[in-house]
């Protein structure tokens, strides 16, 4: 793909139209910001597919319809399959110049929807799969998912004397998707919103499946004040617990390589879900981060 030909999108030239408006998401919701901006990039002729999850729950409340373009709710495990069907249907009807996009949460992507996503990438259907990752099943009341990091307190992994919350590490979804040799995959964060919209714009031009994993904070589930939700998503990148990278033409590329990480304890102490962590457990998180970054820097340059 020729990257130089793609025009950069910014606040000045993005459309003024709103396609996700008047929804009932919690105040300060990071996922709704990701959906809003992605739909603005994709424009009028887009078809959104949403599995059961927060964005489906807050957007489609009869008689309200917060989506201003085509949108449909899919089954939890089949969102990528339904998007494949929409693409195929449009092709059969000769409807051109459309974009099919999936907005699934971390549970709907990394746990329940993974096989359908894998199938869609295998068939290389023209669709954009956006996973907004708030690190637990937030819609049903904060249960642990495959993308919940170590030490997170959720309702299914309560923190107490015996366990520090979640005892498993975050699943490496980005590399799982990249291992399919997908045409375009990227990670983003709502804290770096310009980076995110330009990745969506890039995914829009791909003739095949593309995948974007966007880190989206959740004030309700994370126990953070509503006003900090964008700031906290930025801080996660700055302290090395999340990374901005791309995969295209069979190669990984790191978009942001911080020389020095911000302090992890500072990031963790702001959030109710990590409040119980002891110094030893925070050291464990720091060690895991350093190990991951050593591997990333060695292999992705």
């Amino acid at each position: 793909m020729d990257n130089t030909a793609i025009k950069k999108i910014n606040a000045k030239n993005i459309t003024d139209k709103e396609y996700f408006y008047g929804h009932k998401a919690c105040a300060g919701c990071g996922g709704s910001l990701a959906v809003r901006q992605a739909l603005k990039v994709l424009g009028d002729r887009s078809y959104s597919v949403l599995p059961a999850g927060c964005m489906a729950a807050v957007g489609f409340i009869y008689p309200q319809m917060a989506f201003n373009s085509n949108a449909v709710i899919s089954m939890f495990p089949g969102s990528a399959s339904m998007a494949s069907g929409i693409t195929a249907g449009n092709k059969a009807l000769g409807v051109e110049d459309t974009h099919t996009v999936v907005f699934a949460g971390d549970g709907g992507t990394a746990d329940i929807g993974l096989q359908a996503l894998s199938g869609a990438i295998d068939r290389d259907d023209k669709l954009i799969y956006i996973c907004y990752d708030n690190e637990a099943y937030m819609n049903t009341g904060i249960q642990k998912s495959g993308l919940t990091p170590f030490g997170t307190k959720t309702t299914t992994t309560p923190a107490g004397k015996n366990l520090p919350g979640s005892i498993t590490e975050k699943k490496n979804l980005f590399e799982i998707v990249a291992a399919h040799d997908i045409k375009y995959a990227a990670t983003a964060s709502i804290g770096y919103i310009n980076d995110f919209i330009n990745k969506v714009n890039k995914a829009k031009q791909v003739d095949g499946t593309s995948f974007i994993h966007v880190y989206a904070s959740c004030p309700t589930g994370w126990g953070t004040p509503t006003e900090t939700s964008v700031e906290i998503a930025k801080e996660a990148v700055d302290c090395g617990l999340w990374y901005l990278a791309e995969y295209e033409n069979g190669e990984f590329k790191l978009n942001r390589n911080p020389k020095e990480f911000k302090s992890i304890p500072e990031y963790i102490k702001k959030q109710g879900r990590f409040k119980h962590l002891t110094d030893d457990q925070i050291k464990h998180i720091e060690a895991a981060r350093d190990k991951k970054w050593a591997r990333i820097r060695k292999n992705w340059g």
Partner: peptide
Amino acid sequence: GFQGGHLVDKN
């Protein structure tokens, strides 16, 4: 099916 951008309630 339902009309898009149909709002009846303020936040």
